[in-house]
Design a protein around this nucleic acid. Structure first.
Lengths: 231, 231
DNA sequence: TGTACATCAGTGAACGCGCGTTCACTGATGTAC
DNA sequence: TGTACATCAGTGAACGCGCGTTCACTGATGTAC
């Protein structure tokens, strides 16, 4: 992991490759514990133990526990952004109907968020108290919006919205926040809405809200080149 | 406060009016502390102190701290539902254009969530670990959906959606989760989207996604009887 | 090339603090006769 | 109506536990000459 400028505030920069490795093992351990046992089990002692390290070693790498948490979530966000950017590259969707592209991507988001349920949930919890963690989520939304707008432009899609930039930003925000809510609260609660139905409805929402093409009517019956799998 | 059956699992039922009063003072104190100082300051000792009660008294009212929390959030949800139901009564919106009605209600939601920021945020955090708290949010969404569907029906609105029930449910969910996200992360982050713009866009989304009337085009220029203030 | 020294990295027991919960006790309220 | 007793309500010091953080010390790595 490359250490960014932002991190330097919460991290004591490692000087040897040995400490660089411990640094990353600590990050991995923290993420693994959050993922398997939840945020509240990710104590400093447990993280150090899992990383085959020690508590003292932990504190010579991070200024405090919060520093580690920020690093974990920063890395997580960076990975999420990288994955999404790859998924949104225009070549990938060449020849695929916009509706199928949307459906594939939203379904992908749903499954990824679900897999990383604990991390998403933990990020949300910390974001409520730590603005710098909150900013990670914003960065994510912002990046996706930009890329999507670009994708639409490259495809020559015309949006029926007074300010297409705002429109896409809002649409992305709506998708993300609803997926996030579903991830956190679990789908078990309302049997009324399966993952598939939710996905389908989010696509409908995007298409109609943004005025994408004039495919409103035949939304349910579109056939086009098959969408490529993501990842 | 009337004690419901659900609560009996986490509450020791009071026998005298005196203890009933302490019960409510404890609830009020907890809510006030969460509101003013945040969830992490709401310790048993502090709650008891603020309620002019004692720790021991606390534990003769509640089975444990979690019991109190559930009661706080149950009460909060009930109040939210009651307020919303009143706001959604059909008489209130007689003669008001559906778009203005939506805009007024969404703006109202935005301001209420913002006022109760700390409580909303705390409920969300606990919901991640306690399904029974999570269910409160679902109940809220469900009630609003039902009432909105009813309101549409009474007004003779025709929805352009294969399953209007699902459509309204999803639309309400989208509005709530985005407002919630904004409440938790704070609007400070993205200067790009003011409360007003977000509200306007949510209305646009509802109108278009649900195919409400054929007012898509003149959304920005509708004039109708003024919407009544809520509360 | 080898030795001396400085700096970096790692260790884990010990500390301190905060918080949820318990418990022995006092006071208040209701009830039976 | 008054007294005795049982039950309910309230009190706050004390307990125990977990967790973040520190610190005195050992070992590893790099560097100057």
């Amino acid at each position: 992991m490359i250490i960014t400028q932002a991190q330097l505030e919460w991290v004591k920069p490692p000087q040897q490759t040995r400490s660089q490795q411990t640094f990353e093992r600590l990050l991995d351990a923290a993420e693994a514990i959050i993922d398997e046992k939840g945020l509240e089990h990710a104590t400093v002692a447990e993280i150090a133990k899992r990383a085959n390290s020690s508590v003292g070693s932990f504190y010579s790498r991070f200024s405090d526990k919060e520093g580690l948490m920020r690093c974990v979530f920063e890395r997580f966000t960076s990975q999420a952004i990288a994955t999404t950017e790859a998924a949104l590259s225009s070549e990938r969707w060449h020849g695929v109907a916009i509706i199928d592209a949307l459906e594939t991507m939203i379904a992908f988001m749903l499954s990824v968020f679900n897999e990383k349920r604990a991390l998403v949930s933990a990020l949300n919890i910390r974001a409520a108290h730590d603005p710098s963690v909150s900013a990670f989520g914003q960065r994510f939304q912002h990046t996706i919006s930009e890329r999507t707008t670009q994708l639409f432009k490259e495809r020559g899609e015309v949006l029926d919205h007074p300010d297409p930039g705002v429109g896409v930003f809002v649409a992305v925000g709506l998708c993300l926040s609803s997926i996030e809510a579903r991830t956190i609260h679990g789908p078990n609660q309302n049997e009324r809405l399966s993952d598939n139905v939710l996905c389908h409805e989010l696509v409908r929402m995007c298409v109609r809200y943004l005025g994408l093409g004039d495919r409103l009517a035949d939304h349910d019956h579109v056939a086009s080149q098959a969408a490529p799998p993501i990842n």
